[in-house]
């Protein structure tokens, strides 16, 4: 793991996988550009589309999916509160999306061995945003457009344009994983 930790590397999205290769678990990043929101129900829909050979509602190649369901925007706001949800619930669909070009996932909490395997195979990264920091993260969203599945309400797919959206590299493209290594390194550091 990168022991510098505190660096805030600017990342522009969408991004090709080669440009993610130097990121290491523990790095701090600031995201600018486009994220697509999708959570449980939207992932089930995306899988149904793939099963039936239909096109997906957005270009997966180089894309970043944000596991989030924002609160509705009060008048004058772009979105309300928009923090990450628990990523492991999307593990059932993630390997399939990664193998079809998805570069980047943003959520919170550990991932399954299958997801990490697909990430290493394809060079994708998984970023963690601070769960429960929805007011701050929502404030970094400049634009929000409905892309697909409006009937899903908060679970619809939205294209968010963000600026200086803070996250931490949780699992890098080599399989470096902050959820196992961060804890172990901290415990070693206090011995």
């Amino acid at each position: 793991m990168n022991r510098e930790f505190a660096v805030k590397l600017p990342i522009k999205l969408p991004i090709i996988r080669e440009d993610l290769a130097s990121l290491r678990a523990g790095d701090g990043v600031l995201l600018s550009g486009v994220l697509y929101t999708a959570r449980d129900a939207a992932h089930m829909r995306l899988c149904e589309l793939l099963d039936s050979g239909e096109p997906l509602p957005f270009e997966l190649r180089g894309a970043a999916i944000y596991y989030a369901g924002p609160t509705p925007p009060p008048p004058g706001f772009v979105v309300g509160s928009a923090g990450p949800t628990t990523s492991s619930r999307m593990d059932f669909a993630a390997p399939r999306l990664i193998r079809r070009g998805l570069s980047c996932m943003i959520g919170k909490g550990a991932r399954s061995a299958e997801v990490v395997e697909a990430m290493k195979e394809c060079g994708a990264v998984y970023l963690a945003a601070v769960g429960g920091a929805g007011a701050l993260l929502g404030g970094r969203v400049l634009r929000s457009e409905l892309v697909a599945f409006p009937e899903l309400g908060t679970e619809a797919v939205r294209r968010l344009t963000v600026s200086d959206f803070p996250a931490t590299v949780a699992i890098d493209s080599l399989g470096g994983d902050i959820y196992s290594e961060g804890r172990a390194e901290y415990l070693r550091s206090i011995k």
Binding site: F5, T71, A133, G134
Partner: peptide
Amino acid sequence: PWRPARRVLETIDENADEAEARGIPICQDT
């Protein structure tokens, strides 16, 4: 003492200020 941990705690603190100041829910899971 752990730096990645401090970064998270600072964000949590800043978020609570921002939620109250802007009248936005602290977390989207209300």
